[in-house]
Design a protein around this nucleic acid. Structure first.
Lengths: 195, 195, 195, 195
DNA sequence: CGGTAATCGAGACGGTACGTCTAGTCTTAAA
DNA sequence: TTTAAGACTAGACGTACCGTCTCGATTACCG
């Protein structure tokens, strides 16, 4: 009987994973998602292409892993009010979208998701579901406080907050403003209240 | 002094433009934006690749032209209420996003916009500015009716309606529901009222 | 009933023929046979491509026509001796091969002949047969003078003189020397005498 | 100090070189030199185009390599007489020129040599110099036998034998005859004797 | 401690699309 | 009907990238 965590042969080097991650984060802002080639990543990281494909099945999966893996699991503080919680959420999302690496990679990554159902599924599981959980929690807190009468639809709140931020930055190409988070939060609140 | 419409040599054939457009609309839903190759377009259209490159500088510019050119200039009816006008707007946007061709091409097209400033500029001029004008007009109508007290920010309304629709369909991968347009319109109204 | 030499419509301009010829002779030494494109010829000549194709069926036929047409019909003087006649022949051939335009075009032209039987036939008729006639004539003169006993093979004499000159210049890449013509003539004489 | 035979990475496969060579030899007689495309070679060989360009810089270099590499290094027997040695040489050259592959490729290859000095240099080194050495050797043998009085010019002998064979087959388009080699050898002897 | 097995960097492999170029044909308005 | 200009189809060019494979060398565990 063999232990599940006892692979034979030479073990993988963490150094390689780190080098891949660093190379992607270095290259994406410089050459964009479309210009991000596997050869360039391997060269930048000083490793072989096979070492990448041993860890990732495709370029989309690679970039997704790098972007998601680098993020610490997020949590939102209980600010005591629905408006405050939603502003914190909007701040979190805007922070992700305005990070240079994420900003450069996101549109290209979303394009890949349309073609690769497996990565799309992972995106839903890792990214969407996690944010959804945060939203469901803050809505539940608001209901218990009495700020919300009936059950709000977390999907619509999610779409309102995430989508408005995305459209502002990537579709309308507007620069982020200091008041943006609270304005988006107000939309989220409207979505929660359903009026 | 030369007339602006006096080109010499053989004029370009409209047949070719039409064939390119038809081929793109045929291929995009079938193979996706990423799988849309210039060779395949030329073969499907029964034309030479040079005829494409004579008209379009890149694949992104080509798809953008096809998608935008095909659209008739849109207008919104005056429904008599802000809510009605915004629902018509949301219907319009959802109609664009759920069209099979647009749906398959949009994420990839937006990814290309990040890398090609000239196309991004045309996208802003042709697509964003046109929708913005519709929004500004309906907001002005609402103000004259007395539905809106002060001046609303058309950019935020735009981001709310466009972004929520985009996120619902492409980020959260939710199917469109019958009530979606009116729910999005409610968000747009909240953005207009600023609360 | 229509006269055979009475074409209707606008007559062809000799200017165009001259411009084509001049353009080819200008371009061939500069860009070589391989770099000689129809577009470049048309641009250099300041004419349309259709005007070229109205006169010539292909690029090979065009260059062949220009090179052969430009030559005046050649004749050889009766020097009084077989050696003298053959030296004059060798001089003639070396003159053709060392002309800058002919030198640059000849190898490429011969390559085309392998693929295009119609031009190969014209080459045999116009170029080979004409030289063959000169050789047959000078051999007949030598026979009548008594310099040659029996009938010599004009084909072998032709191959000896033409081939040695061609090989010297194009295969062995040797520079022409003052004595070359008389040395080649000696080989022609040996071919004529059959020893 | 590094060993000359220490390449890193995956070594090139001899199978690929062999497949390229076989494809060229298969295609050249069928489609001619002008019709020999890199795509067709790659398809016929069942390899990628990159594998060809990794080994050869141009089509001319490729065909030249294939034709020269396939040939075993040639040598001539000492037949005991100058006439015999030259007949063997003429036979050798006629054998090369009448080989289907060489016959189809030679004129096109020579045309390319005019434009590509590097290949022309290799042609001189590998092909011309090798034949020249054979000629110099047989002339020296004849001198030691007493068949030749003074020093003969090997270049003229070379031009006479090589050029007459080339002109007979490719310029005059004559079929080879049984007596051709000895007739060409007689011309070579005349070139050697200088009369 | 020697054998087994998976790793490493490097780069060749087949395949495919790119954007450019050329050949030869066709179409325009003007002459 | 010819002219200059230039668009047209077809297809080859040489480059670049993908994802896989192969090399010699390395690095762990196993017996």
């Amino acid at each position: 009987m063999q232990s599940p965590k006892q692979p034979i042969g030479r073990p993988r080097e963490n150094r390689v994973d780190a080098a891949i991650r660093a190379a992607v984060r270095e290259l994406v802002p410089r050459v964009g998602y479309a210009g991000l080639t596997m050869d360039a990543i391997a060269a930048e990281a000083g490793i072989g292409k096979a070492a990448i494909y041993r860890r990732h099945t495709s370029r989309g999966e690679l970039v997704f892993s790098v972007l998601v893996h680098g993020r610490k699991t997020r949590s939102l503080p209980d600010t005591g009010t629905l408006a405050g919680d939603l502003t914190a959420l909007a701040d979190l999302i805007l922070g992700i979208f305005t990070d240079p690496v994420t900003a450069a990679a996101t549109p290209g990554l979303l394009a890949d998701l349309q073609q690769q159902p497996d990565i799309a599924a992972r995106f839903q599981e890792r990214f969407v579901a996690e944010e959804r959980a945060l939203i469901s929690a803050l809505l539940e807190r608001a209901r218990q406080r009495g700020e919300l009468a009936a059950a709000a639809d977390p999907v619509l709140v999610h779409a309102a907050v995430l989508g408005t931020a995305y459209a502002w930055l990537f579709l309308l190409a507007q620069p982020p403003t200091p008041a943006l988070a609270s304005r988006i939060a107000a939309l989220g609140e409207a979505a929660a209240r359903g009026h």
